[in-house]
Write a protein that binds this DNA or RNA. Structure first.
Lengths: 217, 217
DNA sequence: CCATCATGTAATCATCGATTACATTTTAGG
DNA sequence: CCTAAAATGTAATCGATGATTACATGATGG
């Protein structure tokens, strides 16, 4: 953080809160502001993020070529937090029980999605920006895909699955958690008779139903 | 609510380019234009719909108090088409086989969602407008919820289900099809290894996996 | 010490949703 | 019929937004 030089420059602002002309780390602050806007339910706009950072409306474009690039950076940050949650959950699951790990994965997925709906939406929907434009997001996602496939392949190898069609099970599992998370996000759960306080229990019930369904008796 | 009677054609139409000052049925045309915009992937804006209807940018506001009201009307139209598809599918399913009807429902749901992704999105996501603002949409949806519950209750009554927790099965089933439809919508399927030509088959596979999982034996 | 580059500001543009004042057409009542 | 009111479209305008440009300022390194 460079200290300002009050000696030379013409006193553009003698008041004690004279901020330096340069912000310091505007890029970071803009991402955080956008994340917070999303978390608040406010629609994310470049100008509003700039406003929160107490900076002119054009300033963000020095750090992001356009709105989509800002949103991509926001999504990358959200995705990082998401992955952290997943990895912590898997770190606590016994490495030997493939199906148990698959279950822990699903629970962590839903847990995070329920608690961070706006961030989950930014990650998941392609509306805010083209997902393919972020190499980090693409890579991260491929790793998660590979991870679930590995867990199911292991489970199949241990003779835990009823069906040998690992890919179909993988897609179905992903669709299940994604669908549940989006139902929550899109406000469908109340309309389907799931009250607020009931959500976490239902998330677990749905996952266990699925695990039971694919497991060999 | 103008219930129009287009009984008498206007003589003004003689001159080729002299269009009538009044549009005729602008409301209907705007809804269709918006539906088409969505189907094309173009973002739906009031102005663009007006442009397609060859009408001034302010004209739509004579028929809809705001953008959300237009979107709600569009969603109602889309929902009507969706329901038609569902009802046709159920009309062909034997009334006695509750689980078979449940399956047919899921297949019709996914079939329509795969072929009308933009319309499905308008129906399903709450971003375009507040779903609660449309009584028709709310009622329609409640009927579908009740319908699935009935099918599952029947199946349980016939001793076809492994678990007695009908509600959990209902939510899981809905999450499954909703999640699959949204994965398609959000462009996730290719990233999860499901190619274009494979989608229909995978949709069926996912549903059958679920049915097998919840069925006794 | 100074030249260069990164970073922020100010002004401006086009688009969009929305509102208002006004014009035109349709329709209903006497 | 005729005319007054209601319905419907136009034109002009507002505020917010994403985006671009010219310019000002401050940081950095040779």
């Amino acid at each position: 953080m460079p200290a300002r030089q009050p000696s030379k420059p013409r006193a553009r602002r003698q008041t004690p809160e004279a901020r330096p002309y340069h912000h310091g780390d505007l890029r970071r602050v803009l991402i955080d502001a956008a994340l917070q806007l999303a978390a608040e339910g406010t629609e994310v706009s470049v100008r509003e993020a700039a406003r929160r950072a107490a900076v002119s409306p054009g300033a963000p474009f020095r750090h992001f070529p356009n709105r989509d690039a800002l949103m991509a950076a926001v999504a990358e940050e959200a995705q990082r937090r998401f992955r952290t949650e997943i990895e912590m959950a898997l770190g606590e699951a016994p490495a030997t029980d493939a199906l148990g790990r698959f279950r822990a994965f699903g629970l962590a997925y839903l847990r995070w999605a329920m608690r961070n709906p706006a961030h989950f939406e930014i990650i998941s929907t392609g509306r805010y920006f083209a997902h393919g434009s972020s190499a980090e997001l693409t890579r991260d996602n491929a790793e998660l895909v590979a991870l679930t496939e590995q867990m199911l392949t292991d489970a199949a190898g241990q003779g835990l699955l009823r069906s040998a069609d690992v890919k179909c099970i993988q897609i179905a599992g992903r669709a299940l958690v994604y669908g549940f998370a989006r139902m929550n996000l899109d406000g469908h759960l109340p309309r389907w008779g799931v009250e607020q306080g009931e959500i976490d229990r239902m998330a677990e019930g749905v996952i266990d139903l699925f695990i039971t369904g694919i497991a060999k008796h």
